[in-house]
Design a protein around this nucleic acid. Structure first.
Lengths: 234, 234
DNA sequence: TGGGATTTGTTCGTATGTATT
DNA sequence: GAATACATACGAACAAATCCC
């Protein structure tokens, strides 16, 4: 009856796959056969399918009937939708935090930024870990609002943004991001709603701009062919 | 390869259950055994479970390990979170629509409102159909933005709001709601962002107020006991 | 064009855990 | 308090569909 005594077998698979996708270990459009994954994790296909279904609803994987699951490969349009929705949600997060964040909440944010700094100054500054931490900062902020629904949505769009950046951006260059995180926290600490929202918007705009600069790098041969098959099928 | 030639077996079950919950045919906290549902729909438990999993992620169904699925019964706190997030999302919807809605889009909204009128003036003015239509108006608006992510989130919170109203409000009294819908569309047609957002906020505020008036009607015996068992487990 | 290999979709039987008598 | 009833959790096998050769 307590919180979660049994983490559920599928949760482990889910989280592992999620991290692997976000950290770009599993690249977009890569196939995810149930057998292979199940064999790797030592679980049955039933478990794997549960994890894949969850990831599909989050937009991190896509499936085609009788074709199985792939790592999602968002189009530029989908990417724009995700970023737009993310800005909308995070504005609300900032607004709420300025209103009612606790001291311990601000401490948690500081601690997270410190961690980002440590990783940034470490051996691999733009490594997978750095990518994940940059996203998690926003998730921590959303959690601090106390609004579970809002936090879940933010977590989702942040994940998808990581995937999008994995496709459309060569380097993450998270250096400036950490500093922007710091400035956001400062504005919240100063109870300055306008500044906090403005910085957050600029921050997300910068992230989106990084993505928009580069057109789809991997040639869309497969996608193009698919489009043609679809048209001939009509 | 075309859009969706095979609607998938679980989709049928999913949509039926979803409608049944939203229209309050299946009441909150009601048990949803896989066997019974599968027998009713003539499908196996596997299919039912897929549908239930989807509903769970949408917040319409809750499950406890080895205990199965229930119709969700949101607490007042969860209800507040849902409403707050909904206001945030729908402000964005209105903002986008004023910016770039098409004529045919406005026509679609008018048509929907006309349908709401017909049902309202029909035999059962506050019936299940009226409840569903009131929610679907907002989903249609979100779809018209063209932002798929935003539309999915709006659809989700609207569903959950219907469930919340089913618990915390005796009568839906959707009369005023239809008129407010009309005023929102008018403001969008006039390209008046401020007015549209203000009306939308007031509209959602009114809906929320209807819910907040009534404390949980069904005695919380079960919930209370659960809380105590949880505390003793700590 | 057709056959085989591979992968998913589904069913059903067994085991496990919970709640009740 | 123990045993029983019941529903889910999981897994193995079968069936269907797709793609490649």
């Amino acid at each position: 009856m307590s919180g979660n005594p049994v983490p559920k077998r599928s949760d482990t698979v889910y989280q592992s796959l999620r991290r692997a996708i976000i950290e770009q270990a599993l690249q977009p459009a890569m196939r995810l056969p149930e057998d292979t994954i199940g064999e790797q994790f030592g679980v049955s296909r039933t478990i794997v399918r549960q994890a894949l279904n969850r990831l599909q609803m989050e937009g991190l994987v896509e499936t085609r009937p009788h074709h199985g699951a792939y790592v999602a490969k968002p189009t530029l349009e989908e990417a724009r939708d995700v970023f737009e929705t993310r800005r909308c949600l995070e504005r609300e997060v900032v607004r709420k935090l300025v209103e009612r964040v606790s001291v311990s909440g601000l401490d948690a944010l500081d601690a997270h930024i410190a961690q980002e700094d440590r990783v940034r100054d470490g051996p691999r500054r733009d490594g997978p870990r750095s990518i994940r931490l940059a996203g998690e900062f926003h998730v921590v902020m959303a959690d601090l609002t106390g609004n579970k629904v809002l936090a879940r949505y933010v977590s989702e769009v942040v994940s998808r943004c990581s995937l999008i950046l994995a496709i459309y951006s060569q380097r993450h260059s998270s250096d400036c991001a950490v500093d922007e995180h710091r400035r956001i926290v400062q504005a919240i600490r100063d109870n300055d709603v306008a500044a906090a929202m403005q910085i957050m918007d600029a921050h997300l705009g910068a992230v989106e701009a990084r993505a928009a600069l580069v057109e789809d790098p991997s040639p869309d041969l497969k996608t193009v062919l698919n489009r043609y098959t679809e048209e001939s099928a009509r």
